[in-house]
Design a protein around this nucleic acid. Structure first.
Lengths: 234, 234
DNA sequence: TAGATTGTTAATCGATTAACAATC
DNA sequence: TAGATTGTTAATCGATTAACAATC
């Protein structure tokens, strides 16, 4: 491959979803002082197969050296580049309730290339409050903070307000939305929505747990560690 | 199909992941007083194609009536059944920091078949605190609350403690773990782990946002609603 | 040169989609 | 019977995996 400009070749969605994991593993390896890593070792750290890892990386270009492996710093830079993390992204959080509070105070964002630049809520008792060093403003001030096309919006409002608030985000120029409300959002073409539904995650776990229980009823309460594995199971 | 016992035929993972969405949409329709719904209408409410919906439902059995559609209440019951939601699942949350607090107070769990029965943290300043009506206990008391194989564990501790705490959950009999730490967990076979990585979600959005920006640089700051769509885009 | 490991190929698997026969 | 809509088939698409030739 021969790509100067990041983002010209298309990368499969499944691969994109794994890039952040690779990036994090590389950060850890770099901090541990590792210079070089093989696909085998990196894959192991992330909990995927090495073939999948190599295939994923091949979509970005070829940054490895045969017989040697990948330069940790170099590969980290390349992936960060592809994820658009050379400069931090601005994030606004709308809905400063329980969850919004937690997200506003979450340290994990800053360390991974995001800057919370605005907190919004129309509740009289929250406006003006300062969370994680940022003051909560009324939604009317959204346009003052959002830089069109360059700000990610996080929706942490109750389901019944999600669509209305989303519309206001979009009107203010937000093109990427992370939705925590258990609601299907309608957005114009060109706006990207991802959904995190916490209850759904539990329901999916419950589905599998129930299968386990009903499949071998008599063993439901017995512990039997067999082999060490990573991630999903049974 | 002819299944009395739920959980005998296997359901594709992609389908399982959508069942909670169908269930929620059905709840909404039921509350709206709807008796019957077509695959077309239900699919529209969830933001998927009707063919996909019908295929998904076909894995559970056939609960529809040709020429008529699905009985809302009946289909709701069937899906709830398959998700193991006839009785509520017990959930313990470990790590009562920012995020753990928010999860402990999150109303969305109870309404979707989960009961938070335990909060755990070893921090001297949190133990004893009451969040959402539940007292925070030290981790040593995990075995007092966990009912082996029947309790879901939510991990909301910092990444560096995630593995250790996970091991303790597993030792106490937890077989389903929802992990909010950006860490790969090693678990014995038979334990099911799902991961929610908030920063990753933002990174995936950032990836697409960057592509949009670099593909048509001149349009990066221009708004152009074209067609109404649901969900993911560009 | 010999050993190691990448990047790619080709086979396989699983998920999506459109179309339609079955049937209410 | 005529109209509507399911459940299923078959084609298509995308993702995973194993194997290995290229190459350091």
């Amino acid at each position: 491959m021969d790509e100067d400009d990041v983002g010209t070749v298309d990368v499969p969605e499944a691969t994109v979803a794994r890039l952040p994991q690779y990036l994090r593993a590389l950060s850890v390896l770099a901090e541990a002082g590792l210079q070089t890593v093989s696909s085998e070792a990196l894959a192991e750290a992330v909990g995927v197969g090495s073939a999948k890892l190599r295939k994923d990386l091949s979509h970005l270009g070829s940054y490895g050296t045969r017989g040697v492996g990948y330069d940790v710093a170099e590969l980290h830079r390349q992936i960060a580049d592809h994820l658009g993390q050379t400069t931090p992204w601005n994030v606004v959080i709308v809905g400063i309730g329980n969850l919004g509070h937690a997200l506003a105070g979450y340290g994990g964002f800053a360390s991974r290339g995001f800057r919370v630049v605005g907190l919004f809520d129309d509740g009289a008792h929250v406006v003006g409050e300062v969370v994680g060093g940022v003051r909560v403003r009324p939604l009317a001030e959204l346009p003052d903070v959002v830089c069109p096309g360059e700000t990610i919006g996080v929706l942490a409002v109750p389901g019944e307000h999600a669509q209305t608030v989303c519309d206001r985000l979009v009107a203010a120029g937000v093109r990427s939305v992370l939705n925590f409300a258990p609601t299907v959002l309608r957005v114009p073409a060109g706006v990207d929505v991802r959904k995190v539904d916490l209850a759904s995650e539990l329901q999916i776990l419950a589905f599998h747990a129930q299968r386990r229980a009903s499949r071998v009823p008599s063993l439901a309460r017995v512990a039997e560690p067999v082999t060490e594995r990573v991630g999903e199971v049974v």
